[in-house]
Amino acid sequence: MRLKISNLSKTYGNGVKALNNLSLEVGTGMFGLLGPNGAGKSSLMRSIATLQTVDEGSIVFDDIDVLEDPMGLRNVLGYLPQSFGVYPKVSAEKLLDYFAVLKGLTSQKRRKQRLDEVLDLVNLTEVRKKAVSGYSGGMKQRFGIAQILLNHPKLIIVDEPTAGLDPEERNRFLNVLREVGAENTVIFSTHIVEDVKELCTDMAILNKGTLLKQKKPSEAIAELQGKVWVTTMTSDVFQTMETQNILSKNYNPDNSLRVRVYANEKPSVHFEADTPNLEDVYFVAINQLTESKA
């Protein structure tokens, strides 16, 4: 394991328990962090990225004790926060140059070379001389990745990176991440379950600062095999149903409801077995569902 988080706890000044005795182990590859808003994903990421202090626990990456030696981690870290600003009227090229110096690329020649590589990687070469403050949302995110990659990071942390991107941009972004993640550790948080399914070699589900589940996606889905049932009904009937164990409900074009439930056995004749998907895993974990008979 490369990143080992042990018993991490943090409580904010207003009493909110952001991280609750969290322990996690992450290896090489893409690691997805799922959870609703307020689950503690951003707190966790900021803590790993040395931007925030914790009350208890430890974080170790390779041989680096992050809490004791934050500078050691920063040397191999690439971090993209959920939202970030840029200096007004500064071009992408100039701003990347500045960040490169901050990240330790002191030789001007090597810096220029890396800049070119990185801009090429995220396809911003043609607009490198334009001010970043004028970029569209997708371009800004790509710039965000560009700055991550400047110092060949071994640990990459991206916080809700695909929020606000159009499908094409999202696709592109994930591809870049996939490439980068091949030999490094990439942790990215999201609540778009699809992203995790496509990309991640491992994942964890968080809620209220607590780790609910850590399992490889395929394994987590396999666990639910034979326990997911689907049926169609009208909304009136739906009202009378017991709401426990409902995984999800969706509207059909004719306004009938397609309901998925979680149960050990077929709840009733109306139900059919269905292949579980990652969303089901998510709902089961979040709602702490237990198997029951319908």
């Binding site: 990225a49 040395t50 931007l51 920063r74 870290l77 971090y79 901050l102 990240k103």
Partner: peptide, 8 residues
Amino acid sequence: HLVDSTAV
């Protein structure tokens, strides 16, 4: 956020 997480 960007600056403070760098190695400077």
